[in-house]
Amino acid sequence: MSLHLESEPAARVGPPRRGRHGTPSQGRSFRSWFDLRAMPYALVSPYFLLFAAFGLFPLAFTLYYSLFKYDLTGTVEWTGLGNYTKLLADSDFWNAVVNTVAMFAIATVPQLLLALFLANALNKRIRGRLFIRMGVLLPLVTSVVAVAVVFTQLYGRDWGLINWILSHFGVEKIDWRAERIPSWIAISTMVDWRWTGYNAIIFLAGMQTIPKDLYEAAAIDGASRRRQFWQITLPMLRPTLIFVTLISTIGGLTLFAEPTTFYNGNVEGGSVHQFQTVAMFIVKEGFREFNYGYAAAAAWLLFLLILIGALINFLFVRRIGGSK
């Protein structure tokens, strides 16, 4: 998590001062000028052309659409902030926001804690290290749709493995899909299964940059392993924590595939939208109801939500070890 924009290599390759290196000059001077001055731009231009076409253009047009009443019939009618005020009064939209934030919280907090402890365990000396690391990354290779298909079956009301296990503890059959909070838990476990190992590996990479003598000094001073974890590992991991929470925030607040698959590929998110996320709401408005302007406005509100989420996370993580 260190970005070395400032630390330039001392001797960057600039245009060779002509004649000094004995470059055959006059005849090739234009070609050499072109090669040194223009070629760098040519090399980065494919990226920026794509960025203009598939990054800037869609973002700008989302903003533009969001100010119009624009639907399938082709009527384009200026509404100013009308779509936004309508959204803020739309109980379906707020329902989607609540679902998204709730699932984000239920999924992310345990996930990051588990990932931290798992990374700590992975950081110990043990045989078969590569095998274990690959093992915890296995879920990442599995596609979201595949994960959701398997978990949906595991959470089945009548024949699901999870209800069968719970029945041994006297728990009545839970209808994971029909009830609000159980559906949030079910979807959150799908997210966690897929991402905990990945985050652990990232934490592990961060942990390995912490100088080992810090721990050895602490051990000599009699600090317990637990104390070392809280007082050395966690504060030193702060840059990695910021990175991981940022990625988790973006991923969590744009959750789409898991809840969609949980309802057989339908973006309604359950019979009373009990697990419809904001991303599903956008797809439903834009591509099922064809309210393009409304969907575009919702997309910008989602972005705002991500910014707020990222800011809260950042402030929270900054506090961790910030005082130490």
Binding site: P58, L59, F61, T254, G286, A295, A299, F303, A310
Partner: peptide, 25 residues
């Protein structure tokens, strides 16, 4: 400045944000 631009735009979920205009395109 170009490199920083790339870094900043990496943080924007373009897929969800720009989906309507991309589809219309």
């Amino acid at each position: 400045i170009l490199l920083v631009t790339i870094l900043l735009t990496m943080m924007v979920p373009l897929q969800q944000m720009g989906i309507v205009p991309l589809y219309r395109l």
